[in-house]
Simulated assay, not measured.
Amino acid sequence: MAVGNHSTVTEFILAGLTEKPELQLPLFLFFLGVYVVTVVGNLGMITLIGLSSHLHTPMYYFLSSLSFIDFCYSTVITPKMLVNLVTEKNTISYPECMTQLYFFLFFVISECHMLAVMAYDRYIAICKPLLYNVTMSYQVCSWLVVEVYMMGVIGATAHTVCMLKVIFSLAILSSYVFIIVSILRICPTEGRFKAFSTCSSHISAVTIFYGSAAFMYLQPLNVSSMDEGKVSSVFYTIIVPMLNPLIYSLRNKDVKDALNKIIKKRLFCISKDF
Rank of each mutant, 00 (worst) to 15 (best):
V140G: 05
Y217S: 14
P241M: 04
I238Q: 08
A258D: 03
V40I: 15
K261F: 08
V39S: 00
H113F: 06
T160W: 01
N90V: 11
A125T: 07
Y60H: 09
D257Y: 03
K264R: 13
Y210Q: 13
E22Q: 10
K253M: 03
D257C: 15
Y60G: 05
D227Q: 13
V34G: 00
K253F: 10
V140N: 07
T237A: 11
I180H: 14
T57H: 00
S224C: 08
G155K: 00
V161Q: 10
Q100A: 12
T207A: 14
K20N: 13
A15K: 08
E11V: 07
L115Y: 08
P21K: 06
L250K: 11
H6G: 07
L130T: 15
L267D: 15
V146N: 12
H113I: 03
V140F: 12
L48Y: 03
R185V: 10
A2T: 07
D121T: 12
Y149S: 01
S110K: 00
T157W: 05
C72A: 15
S53V: 06
F274Y: 11
A205P: 08
F268Y: 13
D254T: 05
A2W: 04
Y73M: 09
N133Q: 15
F107T: 04
S169Y: 11
E19C: 10
P95S: 08
L267Q: 13
L101Q: 08
V223D: 07
P129N: 06
Q139A: 15
S200I: 01
Y35F: 10
V86C: 01
R122C: 11
T198W: 08
D273W: 14
R192T: 12
I183P: 04
M163K: 04
L170V: 15
S7V: 12
M81H: 03
C269P: 01
S110M: 00
Y120P: 04
F193A: 12
F274P: 03
V206E: 03
S169N: 09
N244Y: 02
S174P: 00
F274C: 13
T237M: 07
S65I: 05
E228D: 10
K89D: 12
V76P: 03
M114T: 11
P245M: 00
D227V: 14
L55F: 02
M136V: 00
S201W: 00
T91W: 01
A258W: 00
L23F: 09
W143S: 04
L32W: 05
A171G: 07
D273Q: 11
T157K: 08
K165D: 15
I154H: 02
P241W: 05
G229L: 05
P129T: 09
L85E: 09
L130F: 13
F31L: 10
P220C: 06
Y132G: 12
Y248A: 07
N5Y: 11
C162S: 13
D257I: 11
K89E: 07
Y176S: 12
I238N: 09
S182R: 15
L184W: 10
L63T: 13
M150W: 06
M242A: 15
T198G: 14
V39G: 00
G211Q: 05
K128C: 14
I186L: 13
F62C: 05
Y248S: 06
H56F: 04
T135L: 05
M150N: 06
I247D: 04
E228Q: 08
N84C: 11
L221N: 02
I49V: 14
A171Y: 14
K261G: 01
T207I: 01
